[in-house]
Design a protein around this nucleic acid. Structure first.
Lengths: 116, 116
DNA sequence: CCGGATCCTAAGGGATACTG
DNA sequence: CAGTATCCCTTAGGATCCGG
């Protein structure tokens, strides 16, 4: 996938960033404000620690968010979107608007042939 | 990802539809108007026929676009977005706006340790 | 509490060859 | 021209164990 050379355009750049479903959903959660690792896990039912860590690291490297670790017992790590990350809000809003208005048949893989 | 249960929200619904990078880019091309199979291949440098067919079929099943085949010699097949598909324009526009304004460091993989 | 390490599966995607 | 069939690779993501 990544070995494939995508066309160079704004859309493709976004797609390189949000390469999986969880990546996008993590951004969505952080748009609500800075959150801890555990808070993100609870806010995203079904996500594994592995995936969450992987996506957060990737975002951090790309300057989408900042990672702040407090050397306490117990440890506390807070993730917060950067200005660049917060600028993703319009994209998420547009996605949400479409998904909320679309009929179920648009996102269920069922090969249902509508009665006509 | 198939067994992965994503949260139920508008964003997740969009992500189920555009499960790969090419899927989104195909929609972007069709927003310019109805296009033939060959036209899409040329407009999307690097895409394979396999992927193009696969994504187009998926979109057709979900009612995002219509497939019209003309029984001619040579064959001609035209793909056109439905009303539901055209409603994806705001999403693509938002992605493009972000990608166009983002610095290169945001979408180029920042390799921590580059062995080689 | 926050992950890193390891192993595993599933699905997108490419290459090639071939067909209606 | 517009696919289809087959094989293979890559990567997102899950499960489990273990370290700081």
């Amino acid at each position: 996938m990544s070995s494939t050379e995508l066309p160079e355009c704004g859309v493709a750049r976004f797609l390189m960033l949000c390469s999986g479903p969880w990546a996008t959903l993590i951004v969505r959660e952080l748009l609500h404000g800075p959150q801890r690792f555990g808070e993100l896990r609870e806010a995203l039912p079904g996500v594994s620690a592995h995936t969450l860590t992987s996506r957060l690291r990737s975002f951090e490297e790309r300057g989408i968010l900042t990672r702040t670790a407090y050397a306490e017992i117990p440890p506390r790590v807070v993730y917060e979107l950067t200005e660049l990350g917060r600028e993703l809000r319009p994209v998420l809003d547009a996605m949400n608007a479409w998904g909320s208005a679309a009929p179920a048949s648009a996102f269920t893989a069922a090969k249902v042939t509508a009665p006509r």
